[in-house]
Design a binder for these strands. Structure first.
Lengths: 338, 338
DNA sequence: TTGTATGCGTTATCAG
DNA sequence: CTGATAACGCATACAA
């Protein structure tokens, strides 16, 4: 098996200098005759330029990193598609790393990316408190970084997120329109600002409609996972229902809740309306379909990508992009029982 | 902002040669005193070695590619976790690329990886006929490749897959045990060998139990997607039900079917038992929970990774690993109505 | 054990 | 427009 052709091989075969070949490859000055000659030689040799060598010479990496708690998360998966779309036609690859594997949190691979400068930029999805060290490293190293839907307040890096407060208000209006007045909210993780904003929006929206909503109607699942939603259902449904509508802090919780509720013969939405946030795909593939407020995940991924690439090439100021969320009313909400 | 430290900087500061520093970094011969000296200098300078330069010198890339139709697929997502686990502690990164974005099939990014030798190895998940060109390129370039659950017969590269025929038989026995005798099967894409094997196993299993199963009981969805399952439900349920149990070629189809069926008040499993294949997470989070035959996706990912890494370093013969699938009986199957 | 010199494949600089 | 030549940062024979 003979050695792979390099730029030098091409130059030699064509009887020109390597500089000329390089210029040809990158679209610089080169005479028409040499141009056709080179295209032939390259085709004959099957030459491909080495991305590694090119990146070394250019001082870049040719890829960005994307990290998230778990790549199994359907929300993230949608975002990822958006990022991939944004990357298409940009000759930049995507490196992926889950922070939590087999239940163990280990950010060291990503720290490795950052320290060893393996990536030109970094997208951190859905970060929480524990991602602070990661963020700090990225900032310290001056690595272009964008956070998507961070679940904390963040400065120093680009942020792409949604208006969770408005989303809460959208749900409030939807439930008020249906005629509900006895409504409860089940929160996510304790320190989640997303959960807090969604609740705040809900309260504000209900207040505007003249519906009172006291703190005894606020429960907590302490998690974003479906299991927790099912667990909450177990405790809530153990006692007689005092509410006609339940707002879960996200879709996963809502789906977990519905699964448990249906198992125990609670009729949704006849007895109880249920709503969530995010609009993960499963919500549309259960019965009844889950009413929710959608995050435009793909658009967010696109935006994150665009901002990151622009930061890598030129300089642009710190971006803070906020997308609206959109109510998707399906079958899990209906007028309350009389 | 001063220039980044290189191996030369370290060597100079420590008053040794670059070779020594390199050896220190890679665990070669170096005296104890120099060793401690270097560790101090490196810490003080905050030196990190460049992955790019190292890879250029070593003639490797330090990362593998993973590709699939769509990274949104929950089946793939589980596999991906397994791959990530297998990669952990191997100082190898993972590049990801979906073949189909916005509904357009475009393998060129992956072809770019292969031709430009951007990756040390490639994992192709769930490949179909249209991935043949990709596979061919990989083989031509001599790139270590493993296919996971290919939906065709494949030679020339490593294969990690499941025993779909046995899975079909497992479903057959399960339904026979419950007392079903009027059973139908809804196939996936036309040329899918997985779908064919699952059907073959089902028929064989039923035959062994003395249950007849004619070709009029075989339908086709021509797809693996939930929408198709719902579409199939629409046509099947338009006529009076002649069957008591339905086996869908995979979980996504089954979930789509169930969603539609429940919407139109078909009681599952009271009127009709439904089963699928794969065991995607959603199957456990709908009501009734979906009876299915599980693929051990994480283990498959691990195996694919291990085989690939071994192929990259040493030479190992062509592997063909087959995992058993495992019946997960949940609530969507029950004895037939009397 | 250690230091030197060379190679890895490109790009960029700068005289021709 | 073109062709040497110097980076790019590291690994590794080979000589010391």
């Amino acid at each position: 098996m003979k050695r792979r052709a390099t730029i030098a091989t091409v130059a030699e075969q064509a009887g020109v200098g390597v500089g000329t070949v390089s210029r040809y490859l990158n679209g610089g000055y080169v005479s028409a005759e040499v141009r056709t000659l080179l295209s032939q030689v390259i085709a004959k040799l099957g030459y491909r330029r080495s991305a590694t060598a090119r990146n070394l010479s250019l001082g870049q990496k040719g890829c960005i990193g994307v990290t998230v708690d778990s790549s199994v998360d359907p929300w993230f998966t949608q975002l990822l598609s958006g990022i991939e779309e944004g990357l298409a036609a940009h000759d930049t690859s995507l490196m992926l790393c889950s922070l939590e594997l087999r239940g163990e949190y280990d950010p060291s691979p990503v720290l490795g990316w950052i320290r060893d400068r393996r990536i030109d930029g970094l997208i951190i999805a859905k970060s929480q408190k524990r991602e602070r060290s990661l963020l700090q490293s990225a900032v310290d190293e001056g690595l272009p970084t964008v956070m998507v839907a961070p679940d904390e307040e963040v400065r120093d890096v680009h942020v792409v997120r949604c208006d969770n407060r408005a989303a809460g208000m959208a749900i409030a209006n939807h439930l008020a329109d249906l005629g509900h007045s006895r409504i409860a909210f089940a929160a996510g993780p304790q320190h989640s600002v997303d959960s807090k904003h969604r609740l705040a929006g809900l309260r504000e929206g209900l207040a505007k409609r003249g519906i009172q909503f006291d703190l005894r109607s606020v429960f907590s699942c302490n998690s974003w996972e479906a299991e927790a939603g099912a667990g909450f259902a177990e405790t809530l449904l153990a006692k007689p229902l005092r509410i006609t509508a339940l707002v879960m802090a996200n879709d996963a919780l809502a789906l977990g809740f519905m699964r448990y509720a249906q198992q125990y013969r609670v009729r949704i939405p006849a007895q109880l309306s249920v709503a969530g946030f995010d609009d993960v795909p499963e919500g549309a593939y259960v019965w009844p379909g889950l009413t929710t407020v959608a995050q435009p995940m793909r658009e967010m991924g696109n935006a994150a990508c665009r901002v990151l690439l622009e930061t890598i090439t030129g300089e642009i100021g710190l971006q803070r992009i906020e997308f609206p969320m959109e109510l998707h009313a399906r079958e899990s909400t209906a007028p309350p029982p009389r």
